[in-house]
Amino acid sequence: MNKLISWTSLLLASLFAMQSHGAGTSAGTTISNTASVSYEVGGAGGTTITNESDPAIIVVQELINVVISSQNTGNVSVSSPDTEVVLKFQISNTGNGDEAFIVQQVNLSDDDFDVSLSTIYLDDGDEEFNSTLDTTYDNATSIPSGESITIWVTSDIPGSRENNQTANIQVSALSKTFNDDSPSQTNPQPGDVVTSGGDPADDGSNTNTDAVYGRSGAAIWSATFLVSAIEVGIVKAIGEINDNLGLNNTNVSGKPIPGADVEYSLTITVTGTGDATNVTVTDSLPSELTLKGGSNGSIFVNGVERTAASGDDNASYDANTDTITVELGTITAGGSDSIITFTTVIQ
């Protein structure tokens, strides 16, 4: 299945549809039923006698159910090539007994390319991916009923893939009890049983319950990698030069001499696919130049005048460090260029 499943609906529908305590009565629990009868002998005014049945006892068997969920909704942007691209998943044991799950990842067809399937890691509990602190997932970690683990599935993206090409993979969680059954049950159906494959029975018999495959005995998740390299380019160009030697500070020679105004423009271009976020332009002027007007000067952002003062808009000039800073925020690739212009003075 290449369809992406929304994290929220999958998780809620599966976990909270169960009756009580999330996963149902624990495997191994005994349900005992003792009925009683009362009756009279000797007609009216006779004595009432009560008798009990022997208890009818049922041991609740283990039901295997699992849910896999991810916060990766939509396509996962990658570069080409790219190494150790990480996808975060939660494996939740929604059955009523302890169970370990085997996690597999496969490349799907019907896409532009395959990725190199790499190591699957078990998160060490800090919900941060770290290939040295997190351990390789061993396909044998038992998850108690109603609890979850976080795993990191890594892939390497091949080179030479163009923007907008996609690769689909599928990650699945399979019951270890059914996989390890002999012969291995590789395609179990709801209602299939592994005799004595479940948690111990609480009836003092020293036996294990059976493991019964549930309606969600295995779980899958599809993810799509989208090659979407994004590049932010900046070009600085010199504009007008005014030597201020003419009447009313007009230009005479156009030469860059001390006291002359030199106009600069910065053109920012975003290419590729996706959004560049938190785009900040800094221009550390050489010591020979200062912004004309200093802290009272102006910086033009896409034709709109901004003050050199900081805090009031997205442009500022720091006279101490001789640096111009402009915050452009988020720019979508392929849109119009952003142009910043300002006038400097040669010291």
Binding site: T25, T29, I31, S32, N33, T34, A35, S36, V37, S38, Y39, E40, V41, G42, G43, G46, T48, V60
Partner: peptide, 22 residues
């Protein structure tokens, strides 16, 4: 319920608690 005696049994009442976890 079975009357294994040799006289009728009257006023028979059967009681059953709904078992735990059900």
């Amino acid at each position: 319920v079975e009357n294994k005696g040799d006289k009728p049994a009257g006023n028979i009442v059967l009681n059953n608690p709904v078992p735990e976890n059900t």
